[in-house]
Simulated assay, not measured.
Amino acid sequence: MKKTSNRLADGREIVYYDARDDAVRDAVDQRPLPSTSTASEIRYDPLLSEWTAVTAHRQARTYHPPADECPLCPSRDGRLSEIPEPDYDVAVFENRFPSFAGEPGPETAEGAHGLFRHGAGAGRCEVVCFTSDHHASFASLGEDQARLVLDAWTDRTAELFQHPGVEQVFCFENRGEEIGVTLQHPHGQIYAYPFVTPRTERMLRSAAAYAERHEGRNLFDDLVADELADGRRVVAETPTWVAFVPYAAHWPYEVHLYPKRRVPDLLALGEAERTEFPQIYLEVLRRFDRIFGPDEPPTPYIAAWHQAPLTADGRADFALHLELFTIRRTSGKLKFLAGSESGMNVFINDVPPETAAQRLREVAASE
């Protein structure tokens, strides 16, 4: 893999990841862009003990452009985009409308009781373009291209862990208009947060409590071992990875993908795990597109990498894993987060996890 870093016209960084060592990436961004301006702030919720980002500048972000004006396609035929090169393998650039950006600053507490805590929304947000082909999807990539994306995620994680104030790095993909995607080009994002996210905090607390109750045993290790032993919810497996529908799945079709050897983050994956990841992940993604039959549009989904925070207690006990889920519950119907889910964070799942796993195995056999 060859890595090349350049700058866009407004000063944002763009990084190219190429499979060929002789690739040259020296195109200059010709757009007359003004300097980027962000106003990200984080505010603390004392009732839930979690942070919220307030980002007024994101109201102006690009929204559903036509295909011939896609900002993630290469710059060709006089049409200038976010990618100055006429072609690319994988490209990563700083988001023009980031939720988190800049350096950390002092935290301030206001109000009579100091409850209104706020600070700079420091960190970094990046866009990851998986391929230059506007009409592709991650599922349509070859194994070599998917491996290149994995290597890019890994390199970005290492780089962003060095960014001042960053505590956690989150690589993810939103796919489909039903999810809220506004750009159809196959891409994902990376958020570098200035705090540990609430979901990860909760997992770390659960793992610590489990170890205390069970003489130091690891919650993630035992969970993966029990799913493998039970087998009813396992949908795919390689010597180094396992994909299963979790026992208490929140979503109609939800798959968790774990390396069988516990590692805290993408940086710790070995060569065998890196080689096998594209095989199992592409297979699971392709099954997702066959769940509801050949006449249904591509399945909308969120794919989310869970990595250990940089400095949190219990980092060594955390297990890297990817959570993949769709909000489509059956043909033509979506799973909405209504009163119970949005109001009380209690999920109601209409599809039993064992049924979902069986369906995901069936669509593998239908090829």
Results as ranks from 00 to 15, higher is better:
residue 2 K to V: 00
residue 3 K to G: 04
residue 4 T to E: 13
residue 4 T to A: 14
residue 6 N to C: 13
residue 9 A to W: 05
residue 10 D to A: 14
residue 10 D to R: 14
residue 15 V to Y: 07
residue 20 R to G: 08
residue 21 D to S: 14
residue 22 D to A: 13
residue 25 R to N: 10
residue 26 D to Q: 10
residue 29 D to P: 03
residue 39 A to V: 00
residue 42 I to N: 03
residue 45 D to M: 02
residue 48 L to V: 04
residue 49 S to C: 02
residue 51 W to V: 04
residue 52 T to N: 10
residue 53 A to Q: 12
residue 67 A to R: 07
residue 68 D to M: 10
residue 77 D to N: 15
residue 79 R to W: 06
residue 85 E to Q: 12
residue 88 Y to T: 03
residue 94 E to H: 11
residue 94 E to G: 13
residue 98 P to Y: 09
residue 98 P to N: 09
residue 101 A to N: 12
residue 104 P to M: 01
residue 105 G to M: 08
residue 106 P to Y: 08
residue 107 E to V: 11
residue 107 E to A: 12
residue 112 A to Q: 08
residue 115 L to V: 06
residue 118 H to R: 15
residue 120 A to S: 14
residue 120 A to Q: 12
residue 127 V to Y: 07
residue 137 S to M: 02
residue 143 E to K: 10
residue 143 E to V: 03
residue 148 L to Q: 00
residue 150 L to E: 04
residue 151 D to W: 07
residue 156 R to I: 09
residue 157 T to L: 05
residue 169 V to Y: 00
residue 170 F to C: 15
residue 177 E to M: 04
residue 180 G to I: 03
residue 184 Q to M: 08
residue 190 I to H: 06
residue 193 Y to T: 06
residue 193 Y to R: 04
residue 200 T to M: 10
residue 202 R to L: 08
residue 220 F to G: 10
residue 232 R to N: 13
residue 233 R to A: 04
residue 244 F to Q: 04
residue 249 A to C: 02
residue 262 R to Y: 04
residue 264 P to S: 07
residue 265 D to L: 02
residue 265 D to A: 11
residue 266 L to P: 02
residue 269 L to G: 10
residue 272 A to S: 11
residue 276 E to C: 12
residue 277 F to D: 01
residue 278 P to K: 04
residue 283 E to L: 03
residue 285 L to T: 01
residue 286 R to K: 05
residue 286 R to M: 01
residue 291 I to D: 11
residue 291 I to M: 10
residue 292 F to W: 13
residue 294 P to L: 04
residue 294 P to T: 05
residue 295 D to H: 12
residue 300 P to Y: 10
residue 303 A to G: 09
residue 305 W to A: 13
residue 305 W to E: 11
residue 310 L to Q: 14
residue 316 A to V: 03
residue 318 F to S: 01
residue 327 I to D: 03
residue 327 I to E: 01
residue 330 T to K: 05
residue 330 T to S: 12
residue 331 S to V: 15
residue 334 L to R: 08
residue 344 M to H: 03
residue 346 V to L: 14
residue 350 D to R: 09
residue 352 P to A: 08
residue 353 P to M: 11
residue 356 A to D: 09
residue 357 A to V: 10
residue 358 Q to D: 15
residue 362 E to M: 15
residue 362 E to P: 12
residue 363 V to E: 06
residue 366 S to M: 08
residue 367 E to F: 03
